[in-house]
Each structure stands twice: as C-alpha cells, then as structure tokens.
Simulated assay, not measured.
Amino acid sequence: MKTAKALVVAAVIGALAGCMTVTGTLYPMNKDAQNLGVLKATIHENWLAQGGTITCTLPDGEVLTGQYRTISSGSVSFGSGFGNITTPGGTAFGSGFGESESSSWTHVDFAALHGNRGTMADCKVYSSSGHGTGVCKMSNGGIFRVMF
C-alpha cells in the first residue's frame, strides 16, 4: 500500500514539474482593440504536452478560453485577407493582416480562443524561459500585442 501511494505521489509531482501558470497582458494596437482596453490572460503551461490552456475575460464579462500549441523556433508566418466589391461602378474594400518572422526564440506558440458569446481570437507568440511576446487578432478586428 505504501508503494502504491509513493508511486501516485511521484506521478503527481512529476506531472506538476512540467506545469507553470503565468499572466499575460494584451495591449491594444488599433482602434477596435482600444475599445476593449488592456486585457489580462491566464496561461497554464504544460511543457510535457508542448502546449497549454489560456483564459481571458473581456470587460463585458465574456470569457475566452482556448488552447495553444508550441512548435520549434524557425521561420513562420500567418495572416488573413478580406475583400468586398460592389458593381457597377461600386465600392471596393480591402483589409489584410499578416506577420512573418524568422526567430531564434525557443518556442513559437499558436493559440485559438473562443468566447462564450462568440468572440474568437487567433494568437502567435514567441516565448523562451517563461517569457514571451506576440500578437493576437480578435474577431471584432482588435489587434493586441501580447507580453508575458
């Protein structure tokens, strides 16, 4: 019985050794983001799983939750484009968002968050030794600089 308890304790300690919780700050970078203000996110890292979970509460009480996954450093890029055109002699509209980076950071983390009221966020963060910086784009058009 003592051996079984010792194994359980060792397994729990081993699992927790690969975990850490940090607080991230999301700083507004455009007008849509300024409408939400500076946000805080709780990041639960699990190094053994090469990822973790993220929770962020918006000022209106909506809770965004999601996961992130870590890949090795290197050259990565992501982005999106939108367009709209009406004819004849109508209006054209275009919008784009993208980022490309060749990084020597230890990790590149990609995250997707979904809110309980429909808001979504797509994030990319470069991290090393429990610190990181990156960008999150929300479905309302808000772009945030992430730092932790």
Rank of each mutant, 00 (worst) to 15 (best):
M1Q: 04
M1Y: 00
T3W: 00
T3P: 09
A4S: 13
A4E: 13
A6C: 10
L7G: 10
L7Y: 01
L7S: 03
V8M: 09
V9F: 14
A10N: 08
A10W: 00
A10E: 05
V12N: 10
I13F: 06
G14S: 14
A15C: 05
L16R: 05
A17E: 02
A17P: 00
A17K: 01
G18T: 12
C19F: 00
M20Q: 02
G24T: 07
T25L: 01
L26T: 05
Y27W: 07
Y27S: 15
Y27K: 13
P28N: 08
P28A: 14
M29D: 15
N30V: 07
K31N: 14
K31V: 15
D32Q: 07
A33R: 11
Q34F: 11
L36F: 10
G37V: 07
V38P: 01
V38R: 08
V38W: 03
L39T: 15
K40I: 05
K40Q: 14
A41G: 15
A41T: 11
T42I: 00
N46S: 13
N46M: 06
W47Y: 09
L48R: 04
Q50D: 08
G52R: 01
I54F: 08
I54S: 14
C56E: 04
C56G: 04
T57R: 03
P59R: 12
G61C: 00
L64I: 03
G66H: 06
Q67E: 13
Y68E: 11
Y68Q: 14
R69N: 04
R69Y: 12
T70M: 01
G74Q: 12
S75D: 12
F78E: 11
F78K: 07
G79E: 08
G79I: 12
G79P: 13
S80Y: 08
F82P: 07
F82S: 10
F82V: 03
G83A: 13
G83T: 03
N84F: 09
I85C: 06
I85E: 06
I85S: 10
T87S: 02
T87W: 00
T87C: 00
G89L: 09
G90V: 02
A92T: 15
F93E: 10
G94R: 01
G96E: 06
F97S: 05
G98P: 09
E99R: 12
S100F: 09
S100L: 10
E101G: 02
E101N: 08
S103E: 14
H107Q: 08
L113K: 02
L113F: 04
L113P: 06
G115V: 00
N116A: 04
N116T: 07
N116W: 03
R117K: 15
T119V: 11
M120I: 08
V125M: 10
Y126T: 15
Y126S: 13
S128I: 01
S128W: 00
S128N: 05
H131W: 00
H131S: 10
T133F: 02
T133P: 00
G134L: 14
V135T: 12
K137Q: 09
S139D: 11
S139Y: 07
G142E: 04
I143L: 13
I143D: 03
F144L: 15
R145L: 09
R145C: 02
M147R: 09
M147A: 12
